[in-house]
């Protein structure tokens, strides 16, 4: 297991509803290592999106602890979380969520603006580099509505990586794409993983995650233990293979 980036202890999230308390996460314990690529799968209402919200500090747990890169996001103030999120987390949404009145380049520059990093020229240069990396540089001056779904999602990934986050999360990042585009987006995630980026995605589409090294099943508010074991075995195999290769 690589050095853990994320540590989750006894994570519980319960919503109060007119019909009574609804427990969406029921005591999850897990660790995510640096450079890992994890896919969370499971049925609708299984708590996948809630889990991601806990991970990114968008929502707070009812109990338990979430520590990301040494920061306890479950107790940090909202103001600090905003700054922390700007520099440490990249989020990719299902519906891309690009700002429609800004150009593709400006969309990618925006997180750097908010994080107040780099000067204007550096932001622009870095945004262009990211767009080139994801093969959408030729669309830089267009507004998002002129791009295909796959292109928009690649721009969204570029935007999510603008501040070199330690953790990239995707909430159904291919849920609004056709298979071809979805495959391209996952290729991008694999490349990122290969470059050492930690990636966590949630999806209900098992087909697209068949090549993801670690696939966890989230059901009824708990991570399926068999999937955790399988993940551990798979990781061990990969580490052994790596050591053998090194020899």
């Amino acid at each position: 297991m690589p050095e853990p980036l994320v540590q989750i202890n006894d994570l519980v999230k319960t919503y109060e509803t007119p019909a009574g308390p609804l427990s969406v996460l029921q005591g999850i314990d897990m660790e995510i290592g640096r450079g890992e690529f994890i896919a969370l799968v499971g049925p609708s209402g299984g708590g996948k999106s809630t889990f991601l919200n806990m991970l990114t500090g968008i929502d707070r747990p009812t109990s338990g602890m979430v520590v990301v890169d040494g920061v306890d996001v479950s107790t940090t103030s909202e103001r600090k979380l905003t700054r922390w999120r700007a520099r440490n987390i990249g989020i990719v949404f299902q519906f891309f969520q690009l700002l429609p009145t800004l150009t593709v380049l400006e969309n990618v520059m925006m997180p750097m603006d908010f994080a107040r990093v780099h000067d204007r020229q550096e932001r622009s240069d870095k945004a262009m580099t990211l767009l080139e990396r994801f093969d959408v540089a030729d669309q830089a001056d267009k507004t998002p509505d002129l791009l295909s779904g796959g292109q928009q999602q690649r721009v969204a990934i570029a935007r999510a990586l603008a501040n070199d986050p330690v953790l990239l999360v995707g909430d159904e990042p291919t849920g609004n794409l056709d298979h071809m585009s979805a495959a391209v987006v996952f290729e991008t995630f694999y490349e990122l993983r290969d470059q050492g980026q930690t990636v966590v995605i949630v999806t209900h589409d098992r087909e697209v995650v068949q090549d993801v090294p670690t696939v966890l099943r989230l059901s009824d508010g708990l991570v399926d233990s068999t999937s955790l074991e399988a993940a551990a075995k798979r990781q061990t195999r990969e580490q052994q293979a790596t050591r053998l290769a090194d020899l």
């Binding site: 990114t56 968008i58 103001r79 905003t82 700054r83 999120r85 700007a86 520099r87 989020i91 949404f93 969520q97 700002l99 925006m110 997180p111 908010f114 994080a115 935007r159 501040n163």
Partner: peptide
Amino acid sequence: KRQIGVMKSLGATRWD
């Protein structure tokens, strides 16, 4: 509303 949420997720403060 959604755009505000997106910008916040990108690191925008309420002041931004």
